[in-house]
C-alpha cells in the first residue's frame, strides 16, 4: 500500500475515535480533548493526501531537474492555517469551560444542561 493511503486510513479512523469520544464522555474537558483529536486527525489526513504522489521532500537539489516521487507541498502549506484555527477554537472552548466551572463548580455536561434547563423555565 502507498504510505500516503495508509496515513489517510489511519487519520479517518482517528477521526471516528475522536467523534465517539465527543459523544460518550460526559466530562467537558474530555469532550474538548476529543475535539482536539478530531482536529489533529484532519491535519494528518492532509499530510496523507500530500504523500499520495510520493514522500521525497519537494526540494530541487541538482540543477538538471530530475523527475522524482515528490510530496505535494500545497496541502501541507494550507493546513497550517487549519492548525492555527483549531488551536484558537480549543483555547476558546477551554476558556469558556473554565468560566462555567468557576460559576457552577461542575464539568459534567448532564448537570450543566439541568442547571440551564431550570434557568430557562424561570
Amino acid at each position: 500500500m502507498n504510505p500516503g493511503e495508509f496515513v489517510v486510513y489511519i487519520s479517518l479512523a482517528s477521526f471516528a475515535i475522536g467523534f465517539i469520544g465527543m459523544v460518550i464522555n460526559p466530562n467537558m474537558i474530555k469532550k474538548i480533548i476529543s475535539l482536539g483529536v478530531v482536529e489533529t486527525s484532519v491535519t494528518l489526513f492532509y499530510v496523507g493526501i500530500s504523500a499520495l504522489s510520493g514522500t521525497v521532500p519537494p526540494i530541487i537539489t541538482s540543477i538538471p531537474f530530475v523527475e522524482g516521487q515528490y510530496a505535494d507541498p500545497v496541502p501541507q502549506a494550507v493546513i497550517i492555517t487549519g492548525i492555527v484555527i483549531g488551536f484558537a477554537l480549543l483555547c476558546l472552548s477551554l476558556v469558556f469551560t473554565i468560566m462555567l466551572y468557576n460559576r457552577y463548580h461542575t464539568l459534567d455536561v448532564r448537570s450543566l444542561e439541568e442547571i440551564f434547563q431550570r434557568e430557562n423555565e424561570h
Binding site: 465527543m22 475535539l35 472552548s93 469558556f96 469551560t97 468560566m99 460559576r103 440551564f116 434557568e119
Partner: peptide, 16 residues
C-alpha cells in the same frame, strides 16, 4: 452563564 453555555455548545458542534 447561559450565554457561555450556548456559545460553548455552538462551538463544539460547529467546529466538529
Amino acid at each position: 452563564g447561559a450565554q457561555i453555555w450556548a456559545s460553548l455548545k455552538y462551538l463544539l458542534i460547529s467546529s466538529f
